[in-house]
Design a binder for these strands. Sequence first.
DNA 1: TCCTTTCATTAAACCGGTTTAATGATATGG
DNA 2: CCATATCATTAAACCGGTTTAATGAAAGGA
Lengths: 346, 346
Amino acid sequence: MATIDDVAKASGVSKGTVSSVFSKKRPISKEVTERVLAAAKVLNYKPNYWARSLANKSTRIIGLNIQGEKFKFSQFHLSLLNGVLSVCYEHGYRLLVNTLSHSYQNKLEHMVTGPANGEILLNPESEDERIIERLSGDVPIVLIGRPSSDFENHISYVDNDNVSMTEQITRYLLDLGHRNFLFLNAPKDRTVAVDRARGFLAAVQEAGLPQSSYRIVYKPDPDNSSLDFGYETTLKALQANQAITAIIADTDTMALGVYKAAESLRINIPSQLSVFAFSDDSVFSPEFTPPLTGVRLHAERLGREAAVMLIEQMTGNVNTVKRTIVPTDMVIRSSCAAPITNFGGN
Amino acid sequence: MATIDDVAKASGVSKGTVSSVFSKKRPISKEVTERVLAAAKVLNYKPNYWARSLANKSTRIIGLNIQGEKFKFSQFHLSLLNGVLSVCYEHGYRLLVNTLSHSYQNKLEHMVTGPANGEILLNPESEDERIIERLSGDVPIVLIGRPSSDFENHISYVDNDNVSMTEQITRYLLDLGHRNFLFLNAPKDRTVAVDRARGFLAAVQEAGLPQSSYRIVYKPDPDNSSLDFGYETTLKALQANQAITAIIADTDTMALGVYKAAESLRINIPSQLSVFAFSDDSVFSPEFTPPLTGVRLHAERLGREAAVMLIEQMTGNVNTVKRTIVPTDMVIRSSCAAPITNFGGN
DNA sequence: TCCTTTCATTAAACCGGTTTAATGATATGG
DNA sequence: CCATATCATTAAACCGGTTTAATGAAAGGA
């Protein structure tokens, strides 16, 4: 590949002039510009990205960091990614998807500053090493999801209001007459799981339900299939406890597992079992039989807001900590109904 | 951020020694290694990615290039992405998602070599400028999908056998008794659309169908919603031509559009209308009502194979052109059936 | 003991750009 | 007509690493 020196020599000018022609940071006479451009075309010269980044101290790369050994993108991530990408596109940034597991990143030979100029971290955990690590660097980060409270005032983030959202949807189910719940939650170390559990508990305790009439099961391993987890947990729970009339699932894929479990137990949804899911904006939710009632998290907007926030932090040197709450809305379809027999509680 | 010089000074050794400690490319005595590492820790030093890339002429970044102004990831891309990512992960590569439109990339200020060390190009077109552009550079590329025949012997690619696959599924529909087809195809400039059209035509012509009894509609704009295209095209076509009994859709999202159109016309699937889709491995396909019959393209495997092939080209300096055909398989569910009345043709 | 080999370390050159300070040429003003 | 301001251009320093050739010390051989 031709270098800037080759072009300089070929067109009889200095390096600096060629540089200016391409970066347009300094005016160059039209005549010279044309001569340089012509030489560049002949030599098939293109400025080297790395050299440029080194000198400029700026790649235009945004990192999207997702933890997980065998991470698989879900519908939710898909929408989120689309949101991030659209903003990246508008501002001429590139997106680097980084799913390297933490253990890998910590190996000495990989202790390197990343290529990204800013990072979006997904699925923050209560004690998230990634955050601590990033804090000492000078790459601005934005979280999607709430950080642990230690960092809440130090890091900008975008999130739904998981606590009150879950409280609200639990009340909805309570109002329908349900008194026996199974809550299939996200992995326990995620802050989102903590928040949703809080909202759920607030509602059921407000309603005066005894501890025996609700159970929260956390997805054990983030790398497991949500579908299987939903299926197996539901199967066991329903076999062990006939009283359960409502299941809240963390994702629509998990809800699909619930559907399948109900089917194999010949339990009808919604007459015998109500199913609710924290869904994304998936086009497929309406296609469940019966169509899935859930809450839209607006994953795409989460992604957009996070990207906008990050770019703001990267360009303006403002160090202000910001928070954006993306509103959610319930979409009532037909997977939730009043339980068959309801003698007024438990 | 601390630089290598700071560490060298702090630990009383030279730049080169510090470099060797981190890169392990030259043995350094244990004593010195520890001293350097200690100093690095104190200073919170991490080797700079860009400087390293410049000197090494190697990022460990793979680019995934998708054309489209307002590109949105679909289920298919999702699976594909998961496949690519899993391989990237295994080999310690990072993935750069590049959806910059072509016009943007061609602007002078963006005429730069990319940060990637190898690229995967999606959705190749008959006359794909991206390929020509890449050919002159020294970044190896791998396509997912067939390139135009001019390049077929110069570029490695991974693909399904679209021609015979489409021929096969068309025969399946013919065997069911269908004689009047609508084929909702991908955008015309994609090679995949050409191949599928070829397979389709081969089958219908072999069956001796007159031109009037089948129609291929190409999705006009790649940036449009597949759902809307499926819906609107189906609606118009069925209103104009009652004889149509079978629709082949390019994607499952498009098929969803067909379902909705059928619903609004009160046409029953599959008794009045059979629907077939080139689907990915979506967990949602079984959830269509009725469950969608289609062909699995194994998007994840397409992604995996492409990534493996690319890394092979990047590391081994082999310049051999390879091709991998990922097999497909039909999944017969219940959206296709014999047409109600079939008097033996047309 | 002296000479050669082995080994860790270093100074300096290099990767391919950007940027600063200096230079020379032209335009402006008194 | 000379002094000054304006402008395009350049040489050299710089970004932060890696690598080569040179150096000096310790080990091995005669």
